[in-house]
Design a protein around this nucleic acid. Structure first.
Lengths: 229, 229
DNA sequence: AATGATAGTGTAATAATTACACTATCTAAA
DNA sequence: TTTAGATAGTGTAATTATTACACTATCATT
């Protein structure tokens, strides 16, 4: 049950930077390593690409196995191919980033045998391997991406208020936005549909719930869109 | 001289989409395959990642070996990890795209043993493996990229006229641009420096030559920039 | 009934983008 | 030497997008 090759081959792995929105915090899902190297340290979920699965399948499988997450928004980030990434042997890793609706998924994440935990971005421990670097690249990409593709929706519940959406942008971009201008711009993009529902159980005027319109969203992607920060 | 692994590993390769500007045509550099599979067909330059080189080093080495190109602008594009990319075995490929000053490099490209040839984008043959797809992704990326990072300079000679620059944008984007607005925008970005030289040997008023200013270019990258199309 | 909290709304000033046409300068040919 | 042909180089007015900014509405709780 082993394989021979003419030349040495790098091991091929995937690593996932999973972002989730928890109330007012953007968080990242980390796994505590059980084994050496870096035993006891936190790392990004990930693992080896099997010979009979695509690289994206590998990323989804590892996410499912290590964190219980399923059917998340997943996008390839970058491939990290330096020589000394893993002390044991040469490992090339294809990194992905994922956006999940944290409220709906958080329970599952901790039922798994391995210890998985959500960390707020400013409370993250230092990570195993070169995962700090991978995380930074992912966060930069996310900040960039929300400015020209409205993927932020993937982090919110299906129905959300405009204030929630604005908060999300403020958290991701790390800056305050003007309420009226934000609404004007978002509604003008024509991807939001107002429902006739309102938020529940708040001690103030209830905000209208919106959802995002898949078809119009596809059109927007083709047209392109730019959200100035 | 062979290696054993516990589990089968995908082979890891790099492929490069090399863009060059030839007068008024955007071209891509292709290699004619000598061996099966796809012997005689055209393919992107590329090859295996060795165990003692980074993935980017592998891309640069293959470019050098197969096309003679050296010190080009090179950027990682995407990693293609489907199962059936190569009929012989499982191969995962990290694709890069390169921008070169064609005039300065075209000679070298053909001195190599293997047959390398520049093809205008609309005269390209169908390619081996999934290289058509890789090419399409690269071209889309290039079209996107020139709109928010002025990487187009990498395709022009060190000193160029504003008309050459405009033509380049028109070719890449596939649409005509207004001369006055283009100049206003480009000069307003503050990355061009006018030299006191003029183009030579043209049968009309000679245009002033410009070059691009590295430091200001770095600033621009940080600030961000958006070139509407 | 009053308080506290957030929802929801419009306008004027400024900046960016667009559309558009003529004169200047050079070479080559007559 | 004159003319024709080719491209360089320049400005403005109209339109559109972006910004800055403050008050009233509604609901739950006390």
């Amino acid at each position: 049950m082993s394989v021979r090759y003419r030349h040495a081959r790098p091991a091929l792995t995937v690593d996932c930077v999973v972002f989730g929105l928890d109330q007012r915090d953007l968080k990242v899902l980390l796994i505590e390593r059980a084994l050496e190297p870096f035993a006891g340290q936190w790392a990004l979920p990930g693992g080896f690409v099997r010979i009979d699965e695509t690289v994206e399948q590998a990323a989804r499988r590892e996410l499912q196995e290590e964190t219980g997450l399923d059917k998340v928004y997943l996008e390839q980030l970058y491939t990290f191919g330096d020589l000394d990434r893993d002390p044991r042997e040469r490992v090339v890793s294809v990194a992905y980033y994922a956006l999940v609706r944290l409220a709906a998924n958080t329970a599952q994440a901790n039922t798994d045998a391995r210890k998985a935990e959500w960390f707020a971005l400013n409370r993250m421990p230092s990570l195993a391997f070169d995962h700090d670097r991978i995380f930074r690249v992912a966060y930069e990409r996310l900040q960039n991406k929300v400015c020209y593709q409205p993927i932020g929706f993937e982090l919110l519940p299906k129905k959300f208020t405009l204030s929630q959406l604005q908060q999300l942008y403020e958290i991701i971009l790390g800056q305050e936005l003007d309420k009226r201008n934000f609404r004007k711009k978002m509604l003008g993009m024509n991807v939001l549909v107002e429902t006739d529902e309102y938020e529940q159980g708040v001690a103030h005027r209830a905000a209208r719930l919106y959802r995002f319109h898949k078809t119009k969203y596809q059109e927007l992607l083709k047209r392109g869109f730019h959200f100035e920060v």
